[in-house]
Amino acid sequence: MSGTVMISKPTPPRAVFRIWRGDAGGGTFQDYPTAIDQGMVVLDAIHRIQAEQAPDLAVRWNCKAGKCGSCSAEINGMPKLMCMTRLSELNLDMPVIIEPMHAFPSIRDLVTDVSWNFAVKKQIKKFSPRLPDAEDGTWRMQQVDVDRVQEFRKCIECFLCQDVCHVLREHHKHEEFIGPRFLVYTAALEMHPLDTADRVPDLKNKNGIGYCNITTCCRQVCPEGITITENAIIPLKERVVDNFFDPLKKLFHIL
């Protein structure tokens, strides 16, 4: 940042939104000049365009508060939640470009087919707790022991991390790689203080953890600020290494 004092200029009353319109068969960008008010977010602008100019513009949203992960899109090329992107952070002298996520097939306009994510999750071994600690069927866990997993459980399944991951976005390895979201999910299960299942062989053989080369793109876009790479993926990679490549363990296997 420069040392000069920021002078807030009056927000221009109108801005142009260049929105991708189309479906699986293809599409084009269309410009929508729209009146804007102070404090508006991109999703507000989309709603105004729907109500006034393009009633059939397709968009997903629910909470309008960054809690449900429905309104993911690419705004001026950046994967973001539309409900948490204020117009004041964008340069409104130029058209604001709004596109659907690129890593998933188009359905219509800003809506993509994210069903792959739901199918991937189902293949991951489910939570299996140890026997209860107390006679009344409950467990005892310290806050420090749940902190890490609580970080992962903040995930709102916006799939923005999946969208930026080059393994999916550019190399389309959807069949072989579960993507950062589901590495975080697996980490949450593996590090859950009560869980007893072992997902490490699957990580290596089925889930393609080896494809990840720690570019940290996923962590940089996560709206929940989850430290995807450092806290989830790297520890999982270490478990895989420990399990499969540790020379001592190998020796024991041979013996």
Binding site: G137, T138, W139, Q142, Q143, L189, H192, L194, D195
Partner: peptide, 18 residues
């Protein structure tokens, strides 16, 4: 609520781990 814990929910904890 306890059942949710058995299904994987992680609520904030008391000092004695409940």
């Amino acid at each position: 609520v306890r059942e949710l814990e058995a299904w994987g929910a992680l609520f904030d904890r008391t000092n004695d781990g409940r």
